[in-house]
Structures are given as structure tokens and as C-alpha cells.
Write a protein that binds this DNA or RNA. Sequence first.
DNA 1: CACTAGAA
DNA 2: TTCTAGTGG
Length: 341
Amino acid sequence: MGADIGDLLERDEISAKDLDGKIVAFDAFNVIYQFVTTIRGRDGQALTDTNGNITSHLAGLLYRTTSFVESGIKPVFVFDGEPPELKAETIEKRRELRDKAHEKWKLAVEKGDTAEIYKYAQASARIDPQVIDESKMLLSMMGIPIVESPSEGEAQAAFMLEQKSVDYVSSQDYDAFIFGAPLVIRNLTVSGKRKLPGKNVYVDVAPEKVDFQKNLARLGITKEQFIDIALLVGTDFNKGLERVGAKTGLKLIREKGTFEAVLRSKEKEDLIPEFQKAKAFFEHPPVTRDYVLRWEKADADKMVEFLCRKRDFSDDRVLNACQKINAARMAKKKTTLDQWF
DNA sequence: CACTAGAA
DNA sequence: TTCTAGTGG
């Protein structure tokens, strides 16, 4: 759960063609988690092969990434490394919620309540190392570059945007802004549909662009103050104040200027060190310059061997995806050559 | 979520 | 051709 400060930001609708030729960094965990929770059969269970291995992430990555490449996007997937110690509490809390959901799922199965089964099957989804490893493997077979962050994927993606290695960061939450990403794309999907949280209902959503500087100017705050608001509301790396949401956070920072001043005014100065640690992490997260972004030809043989022979995908669909990727690559090469001559 | 066959 | 319901793995 990212800091719930999205309400403060204005978004501009964009169309897929605005992204033609653009390099877009995806927070891999973010994307994979969405696939595993939403790509499910009628029973609410994730898709699996005949041996019970989860395949939702593979289906999602294969079809969506192919479609992006076809529309001219150059995707990069940024994976998480070691989570910081500051995040331990958040991780533990998520694990507890998952376990609780799993218990509720078992009860729902006993009762035979379809809606509940679906809901709690989703809420108890967890991403194990195999899912991450296979995702990296598939993307590599597809010729899509992957980057390993030393720590948070969002932080690495924001850094790569600052370095102008990529044009956009795509994410569903707002952590990328707290890490300093100036341009974030949201709702970037193939179908233009997105699931409503909690319900098994899909709504049409257009992709949108959030310009951080523009929003700061409109709100009349600095980037640092935006981070302060996030800290007051609460982030993955610190517990915020009770009953302080985005609006109250903004108001408090406008009045007092800094989170330190806000905490002092509420006689909560004991929280200052904790907030400062989280802020230091947002401002200087571990990132690496050790990445190479190269888009290669999709390896049809490897993809068929893995997806079809080992994970029960249809040969037709996999070969079709392969062809689309390689055709798009060829078309791009040709146009870049044309520009030379 | 994305794909696809069949309906409209 | 475009839309919908059902499947994929």
C-alpha cells in the first residue's frame, strides 16, 4: 500500500500513441502482483498448469508486454532487491492480512459462497520467489530488459527517470513520486479496463499522466513538503498520524511548513527520528547505475519450450506473441534506418 | 487481465 | 465490423 496522497494530484489523460517510441519503466512487483490477483478463473483461483504451478503472471506479462511492444512502447521491468529494515513492519502487516484472508477463504469455500471465495482468494494471493524468477526468465526470453534494484523497484525506476535512461515510470501507486519521479503513467493496460478494489467489477479507465512539478506548483508546495505530507499520512516506511489523510496533511504542512513543526505542535516530537529515517530513505534510497537497456529479438524456441511444454500455454498464442514482438522490432529498426538515409 | 469465438 | 461472454492455464 503506497501513501494515500494520490487525491492531491491532478492527472492528464493520454492515449497509447503518445507513448510510441517511449521507454517506460515498470515496477515489476507492482505489475506481477496485479496479474496474480486479477487473472483468475471463474472459481477465483489463479491460473495454473496441470502440475499446479501458477501461470497468471506469465499470461499477463506475455500478452500485455507483447501488446505494448506492438504499440511502440519500449518496456523495462525493474525488480525489487532487499527491502529496507524500515519496511519490516509493513511487510509483517501484509503477511498477517494475507493469512487472515486465507482463513476467510477457507470458511467461504465451506459455505460455498462464490463471491466471498473470489474475494478472499484474491486477498490471500502471495508472490513467491518462483513467480519472480519465472517472470524474469520470461521477459528475458521475450528480449525485454530487466533491471535489478538493490532495494525498492520504485526508487530504482525513479532514479532511471532522473538519469533520463527512461521516459516514464508506470505505476499504480504514488510511491514513485515520493522517490522523486517527475512523470508517472497510471492505468496503462491493453484493454483499458481495471478492477475495482474489493469487488469483482471492471471499469473502463484511460491511461493518465501525472506531472509532478506541475502538481507541486499548483499545490504551492515543494517536493520536500510533498514528502512531508506523505510521512504525516503514513508510508510503507513509517506510520503516519491518526486521522491524517491527504487533505489534512496538506493543510498541516501549509500551516507549519515541515513535518517536524507539525509534530512539535502536536507534542509528538518523539516521532521525529522515525520520520527522519523514512525521509532519508525516500531522498537517498539505494539504487544502481549498473543496468543495460537493450531490446532483443524474442526467442521463440525458448518461449515455446518454457510456456508451452512446461506451463501448458497454447503454441498458437505463444508463437503469435513472438511474431508480434519481432515484427514490431523490425519495423522500428527500419524506421530508424530510414532516418539515417 | 487479455484473448477469442460467436452474437449482434 | 463491434461487442459480449466465456476461457485461458
